[in-house]
Amino acid sequence: MKRIFATLALIAAAGPALACETVTTGSLEVSRAWSRASIGTARPGVVYLTIRNSGTADDALISITTPAADMPMLHQTVMTDGIASMPHAMEVPVPAGGQVALEPGGYHAMLMDLTQVLKEGETFPVTLTFRDAGEVTIPVTVQNIGASAPTCTSPDE
């Protein structure tokens, strides 16, 4: 919690939306959480973020929940012989001492059955459940529908 306040203070000091909010659980640090604005609620939304594991044990992201969608799910865009398909990802591995990014063209959280329109500039919370590190909630910033990367930067960037 202290970390969150420290980060919030940083954001306040750095000006609007320049630093990414970072949250931690155990040895995992989650940051750069962003989404794209939706047109209405009929089409699925998306969440991208980065997970860093400073610990010595592998972990895995096993599920997500959010009030913004009734059926959020982890997916992975897979290219096979030039064909893109998007199978359900049972889990997203977070290797010890490494990091994994949910980013365009790879792992992503797909938000089916949106309960609200995702509006650019707004945030909504997403709770991540890790196999070992447990749950953590991070605010996700909604960017333009044409965004392809987070506009915020990590503290070490």
Partner: peptide
Amino acid sequence: FTNCPDICPTTLAEVAQ
């Protein structure tokens, strides 16, 4: 397809750019 949350928006965003 418009229900595609990942690849299609990313590519159309590139086209827009």
